[in-house]
Amino acid sequence: MTGHDHDHHDHHHHHDHDHSELSETELRVRALESILTEKGYVDPASLDLLIDLYEKKIGPRNGIRVVAKAWSDPAYHARLMKDATAAIAELDYSGRQGEHMVVVENTPEQHNMVVCTLCSCYPHPVLGLPPVWYKSAPYRSRAVSDPRGVLQDFGVALPETTRIRVWDSTAEIRYLVLPMRPKGTDGWSAEQLAELVTRDSMIGTGLPKQLGETA
């Protein structure tokens, strides 16, 4: 493995807090970046920008804004249910892994849950990159066959009469769950409502915070 010829891309040295115990995978990625940079295929500045984008700009706070607006603005709610991609773009969220959005709304009769059994399809512009559990074998295998059991793993118990609807994202359509607005929030602003929305409630493995649960 290399370790001596990094002078031309000093930019990533500051990330290395620990030089002692680098795993085989860490060394492999580092060497690969070095090869691809030397060959002129990648610009390390572009890599830094991509990482910054997905760590700081693209994340569940975007979806939270969409949900809070849908809860507080009936006209927006109607546009979101009719053409989710366009309504989400109104809030300036669009692009990679969110090109074709569908919003599915929870009701007292039906609870929606989203999975990708084949890989990790997830609506990036509104939720960011998926958590490890979403990409894991336990979730991908059981979400479609035992969703109530999966909900139990998340500490969620729904009434036996509530229908469970699971959406397996097998093509390029991406699904966002619109959870039920918590009771007792009449007259709340979108900003106040946003405090109640959780990431998992937009995947369908959780519920929004109820009144009394917020700090």
Binding site: H12, H15, D16, S23, T25, E26, V29, R30, L32, E33, L36, Y41, V42, D43, S46, L47, D48, L50, I51, Y54, E55, G59, G128, L129, P131, V132, W133, S136, A137, P138, Y139, S141, R142, V150, D153, F154, D200, T205
Partner: peptide, 28 residues
């Protein structure tokens, strides 16, 4: 495969190599 185990306060990436592997894949 057992139960689903959510990670509290999960970071976007677990370690620097995941950041670079993700970005390399997108950029390539």
């Amino acid at each position: 495969f057992g139960p689903v185990v959510p990670e509290p306060n999960e970071p976007v990436f677990h370690g620097e190599w995941e950041r670079r592997a993700f970005a390399l894949t997108v950029a390539m």
